[in-house]
Nucleic acid binder design. Sequence first.
DNA 1: AATGCTCTCAACCGCTCGCAT
DNA 2: AATGCGAGCGGTTGAGAGCAT
Length: 314
Amino acid sequence: MGRAPCCDKASVKRGPWSPEEDELLRSYVRSHGTGGNWIALPQKAGLNRCGKSCRLRWLNYLRPDIKHGGYTEQEDRIIFSLYNSIGSRWSVIASRLPGRTDNDVKNYWNTKLKKKAMAMHHQPQPQQQQQQQHYHHQRQQHRGGADGARVTLVSTPPAPQSQCASMQPSPASASSVATTTSGDACSFGVAAMYSPSPSQVPQAPTLAGYNSVAAAAAAAAAGAQHSPLAELICQAPPPIAADCWPSCVTLDDVFLPELVGAGEFPNGNLFGGFGPLLQDRSSLELSACYFPNALAAEMWTSADKPAGLCHSLT
DNA sequence: AATGCTCTCAACCGCTCGCAT
DNA sequence: AATGCGAGCGGTTGAGAGCAT
């Protein structure tokens, strides 16, 4: 059973917005803000529109920081990646692309990227497929999308290692030290927090080995049964080179097991092909990363990392 | 020039979620 | 605990622009 309409559709204007309406809404929001109440806004702003319509118009079109069109190759990759990782959660995907809206990303996917993916589907590369099947296998153990363990690396000196396998659920936020269920702080350099409830946390400790940006097509190409994108494409774009790392992607929010190189956090090769990249970027503040589970987080702390990378962690 | 088809994207619809009561 | 309400989300629609015939 659906809810009651938010406004009387018969009495409000619908359809395309006129420049005058745009200006009314723009000037009202500029001077008053939304007030956290979109339902009441149209009347206050002198608009004969449904509040929902006003909200959509503002968020998707009138906001000053909106970018329209002109998607870059890097943005494409991010969308591919995130779509593969989390599916059609457009608001989450859009949040990784400054200036983009969920509606815009959704439209872009439906009209352009999906076709691009399907075109790739007809050009499979056996060698990649084999490797990607491996990714796929591991990816399935990560299901839950972005709901893996979120790890914030802290600069506190290493303490005796304790298992953080039972982290308290916590809102995803950087620079927080999680505690175990017994209340012990996991202060051995890594504080891990699970976004999902513990029961949702994948049990298998195996780590995926691809970066989150190139991963989209990689995992998808593996034909992952749980991946929507996987049904569409079978070929991964090449890994991102150090000199074209998307400027809009910060290391602040990287799903680390995907960022690191191939394998299971091999000692001495933690970052696989991305070591040089990360070293180049060591000036960035790596404040929060995602791991699929606490074991992965622990492996991170004990693994060799590019010099300087941890230096700037908070 | 006229017609039909395809594509794009702004806008709508219906639902879930979270908060307040 | 139950209920109501608004915000937010993702899927879908349809008008209009562009292109092909």
